[in-house]
Write a protein that binds this DNA or RNA. Sequence first.
DNA 1: ATAAAAATCATCCAAATCGTCCAAATCTTC
DNA 2: GAAGATTTGGACGATTTGGATGATTTTTAT
Lengths: 300, 300
Amino acid sequence: MPTSGNLLSPKDLSVAIGVSESSLKRWTDRGFLEVSRTAGGHRRIDRNEAIRFVRSRKMQIVRPEILGLPESVAATPNIDLESLDDLDEAFLELMRHGHDLGARNHLLQRFLDGETIAALSDGPIRRSFDRIGELWHEGPEGILIEHRATEICVGLALELSKMVPVKDDGPRAIGGAIAGDGYKLPPLLTTAVLQEHGFRAVNLGPNTPIEVFELACFTDDPAQRPDLVWMSVNDLDQDDPGIGDRFTGFAKRCEAEDLTLVIGGRSVGEIDLESTPSLPVHRSMSAFADFLEAWKRRRT
Amino acid sequence: MPTSGNLLSPKDLSVAIGVSESSLKRWTDRGFLEVSRTAGGHRRIDRNEAIRFVRSRKMQIVRPEILGLPESVAATPNIDLESLDDLDEAFLELMRHGHDLGARNHLLQRFLDGETIAALSDGPIRRSFDRIGELWHEGPEGILIEHRATEICVGLALELSKMVPVKDDGPRAIGGAIAGDGYKLPPLLTTAVLQEHGFRAVNLGPNTPIEVFELACFTDDPAQRPDLVWMSVNDLDQDDPGIGDRFTGFAKRCEAEDLTLVIGGRSVGEIDLESTPSLPVHRSMSAFADFLEAWKRRRT
DNA sequence: ATAAAAATCATCCAAATCGTCCAAATCTTC
DNA sequence: GAAGATTTGGACGATTTGGATGATTTTTAT
């Protein structure tokens, strides 16, 4: 019986990836794989750490169910990284037809093969929504597809973010989508990417007024104060001309109080950034991820 | 009952750290862990000693709430485990403070203790959002709390629905929130409840026009046709007077084509149901769950 | 107060895991 | 290819783990 809870025995993991127990124990002793110990000295491996390991080494998974993964990720051969465009095309088709299980398997498979959450966000997810967004304008059929696909991706984004090991002493990040932007997926994906890079991330969701950002960032309690704020801009309320000034005010206050502010999103160009020239703006999740790594290095 | 006072039984601590009672008792006998004894010889472990032990061995904590760790209930230390109302109150406090881990532990524990997803939806989740909704009108602070709590609950709803076994031959259900209703949580919870009762559920999410419902339900492909449709109504677009007629038309078509339609939600009373008297309307998830069971019995 | 129910005791045992060693397989280098 | 270095998988006795047992203690209900 595979060990209960979130902890695996060396035997469990060795069976899951089809290697001998001996090798696995040797790997843990060499530090390739982090293990905790019972009081009696038996090794225990966290599930997420196991997933991180198989991903980093690109190991085959023979028995996915032991790791809490769907059976279907076992049989499929490793994906050919050359034909990424075709792959994204395949994901788009799954999303168009509302094939939730297929989309889940596709994304999990690619995640296990080593693609980062940031890369998956920029690749299959963003590409499919670019195309599905076009359909949206063409009537109810497009809206149906878009709604179904969004809900599927919401589940996938949360599932992915639960598969990365958590660092409970990582830097704090908070953010959301600006007022007028009702897209819920970008904030979820941003949160997942932040967790992928060791942040403790709080998501304020879509349609968050600037005043709420201010309140969340400049709280009196220093233990709650974030180290980084992010804002997603995929839509803007055209009827609210004051929003530019409010944003500038917020950005200046962040700079004054030494709080890093990052923005990104499709409509980020519609914001006037003249008065805040040093503000980091990102056009992709991968760029955001690179920024996060540089930010962490600068911090230490 | 898990615990009372400041002393844990070996069983309590063993489930808290996900280890067998046998092992834990052996560890106490070897002195890894200091215990006192009752007059009759039963072991009693001080909470602080238990925490020292798990910290010193870096053991994983499966059920933090048993140890009373800050991740769970420390923010609200005065909760009375006897009364359900006070339990819901504790959950509300966790949500108010944006304590995602604590809220998760709270809800998962209650789920594992036997409460259904429907009961949790009507209980802690609905109650806390009733209260948090009041705060929303009071300004940015309330909006901050509401946004944070919503995102936490989105994650919890999806996590719960992943914990119920999927029946891949169950009846098909599809649904979402009506146009003008932007609340994303009710559709997610409804989907979770449907899965809890063996349905294959598709979620169209918030703000779904009636035309999209029609398209999704009366598709040409019989393999995609659902056996049940549900519609969540927690808000209505007041500027769209035609919505009542469109809804009536949709309801009549469902009846004509022998497709069960169910509606529910806070604002369901604002819809004119005169012309569709036989339509099932539910005011709670528990009522909806009862209906689903009756529906399945009638079907067989 | 008393009895029934639940929790815990100490003990035992099979299965799992420990650390270590070694021969076979695989990779490197020449 | 051959020689040398490294990795792998299996075997070993010793130790640890988790579950079961019947007896005792604690809690709950009457």
